[in-house]
Design a binder for these strands. Structure first.
Lengths: 331, 331
DNA sequence: AGTGAAAATGTAAACGTTCACATTCGGGAC
DNA sequence: GTCCCGAATGTGAACGTTTACATTTTCACT
């Protein structure tokens, strides 16, 4: 029964019922235009033959594939990964499917190549998950034929939606200060990442507004090991009583280094992270952090690239959720 | 300049050069059949017009889209997410793109719906990321028209590739025993997950082969909070000197609960997790765990669903990587 | 200069839809 | 019975490729 025959087409259904292919098409697209009795016959034939509309043929005629391209950095980091999952959900709920293309920002030409491939597959629009600034800039002009939105970063000429990471960082630092911190250091994310820049900005502004001196800044690469390294460097030379770390993994590394150095968190030093990774609620100590609203960002992006969307080129910020836990509440 | 005109087609290129559309087609598909001089002219016209082959039209004729469907549970857990990323990479390297469809295993009819959508989009094949056994079973017969592979689980009638989680679990427990453990408890993953079952099996077999009595088994849901809960339950009643936890997040929860109960890891109790989440190397204590080989699994799956693959319905296991850290080495 | 085969190019049809029409059907008003 | 109008259905062409085959050109060899 594993017949190598091609799947049934509209014509096959039409022939089975004794109507024209156009009637079958109408049953699918404008059922109200076809008489009840014939419609039922057609629907039954569809079921019996196991007919499925061929969306490739449909796409050829209508120039719409109902596919949305998602370009994401291949880093494997928490944020981009979550964003991709949220985008798929949003697209699915909007009746579309997602073509995923990951890009290694380190490889020359990779972003251009990603666009090339999406254009070829005929996606109706694209969402760039762009925590790296260079990403958006690698877009080439011919892309103007399809709507584009940017998730989690600045969009240049395209509409962009992101969590208000600066705001969340600001509030986290404010919180640290409210709990007695006078010298708040910062372990930042790598240069070139929008997320890193915003979180750093929030830290800086919060300190300024609190009338505190600027704290020590160390630059990390998001990795836990790198956070531990930063923690050691802090211990070696800096004066500080709190650390705002740009993501949870590095924060755990910092805490580890402090613990090894005999410094207690939150007893001696307060710590806050960012991302709310799944383990953040059970570590020793439990980690104060902020969670992004990936679903809201994704919904906005999908809406922006759907047909008939009036997309203005600005950046729209959505609030983060602050989560206060042991690591920042003082002893 | 934002002309709403349709993108150039082969015909446009042909006309620009003064050849027939077929010559343009040949330049793209069988360049050796066309004279050097005309080929260059055509290639230049392609560049100047910004022509891109329309793969929708090509797909209609050839019945191949170069798209591969990936069905994954929407859980957001570590394993499935990593698997999806690895599959995208493998597909990309094989010249294909990935259509991602996430499924909520809890929603009735969701798996069937996912298939329906993939079939509609005309994917050439599909890979099911199937940590849940029910997933694979929800496949319906009409799917026989396209090649299918299963990543990270049993495949039923389809070829399946997965990390040897039972083996890794076995070795982890063996390691715990080698470091003095006599009563190894297990915090398992939820029923219905292949990963959970395999890890549990490895634990059970290792204990049996070591001549040790069966340990206490608690069932969790993969979440860190649930792990903490399990840790409390262990403390409340069980006798144990080591815990093998089915994933790292729950393991951290267990460790947290033990710490709160005044039990030191690894001083009093040894702990091993599974997954090697990014933070596992810096927690207090650093976590002994096992990392899956997602890339190898993905490569195998993509190869299996590519044309001309002789796919036998078995399950092929690939080795995991064991990572021994503080949490299991004794004091 | 003429032949023939190989190289280069062209034409027709098809893939499975949808769009824009054209045609037929049914039945109430005259 | 005829006419007309809306409802129901049918026909032809097009979307941009590829496949299969037909035709023209090129050129080495006689």
């Amino acid at each position: 029964m594993t017949s190598p025959t091609r799947p049934p087409s509209m014509n096959d259904v039409a022939r089975a019922v004794g109507v024209s292919y156009q009637t079958v098409s109408r049953v699918l697209n404008e059922p109200h235009l076809v008489k009840e009795s014939t419609r039922e016959k057609v629907e039954q034939a569809i079921r019996e033959l196991g007919y499925r509309p061929n969306s490739v043929a449909r796409a050829l005629k209508t120039a719409r594939t109902d596919l949305i391209g998602v370009i994401a950095p291949i880093t494997g980091h928490f944020g981009p990964t979550k964003a991709v999952c949220a985008l798929e959900r949003a697209a699915r709920e909007a009746g579309k499917a997602v073509v995923l293309v990951q890009v290694d920002p380190e490889v020359a030409g990779a972003p251009e190549d990603a666009w090339e491939r999406l254009l070829r597959y005929g996606v109706d629009g694209a969402v760039v998950v762009s925590p790296c600034l260079s990403f958006v800039r690698a877009l080439r002009p011919p892309v103007h034929m399809m709507p584009i939105a940017v998730a989690g970063g600045e969009g240049g000429d395209w509409p962009a939606y992101a969590t208000d990471q600066r705001g969340a960082a600001y509030e986290l630092v404010e919180h640290l200060v409210a709990h007695g911190a006078k010298r708040v250091a910062h372990v930042a994310g790598p240069l070139g990442w929008w997320d890193a820049r915003e979180r750093e900005r929030g830290w800086r502004e919060a300190l300024a507004d609190a009338g505190l001196p600027e704290g020590c800044l160390l630059r990390g690469d998001w990795s836990a090991e790198n956070g531990e390294e930063a923690g050691k460097r802090l211990l070696a030379g800096e004066e500080f009583d709190a650390v705002f770390v740009a993501n949870d993994q590095m924060a755990l590394g910092v805490i580890r280094a402090l613990a090894d150095g005999g410094v207690s968190v939150p007893g001696d030093v307060l710590v806050a992270g960012f991302d709310d990774i799944p383990a953040a609620g059970v570590t020793v100590p439990r980690l104060t952090t902020a969670g992004q609203n990936f679903n809201a960002v994704a919904d906005a992006c999908i809406a922006a690239v759907s047909e008939g969307a009036a997309s203005s080129p600005g950046l729209e910020l959505l609030p983060a959720e602050l989560i206060f836990r042991e690591s920042s509440v003082g002893k």
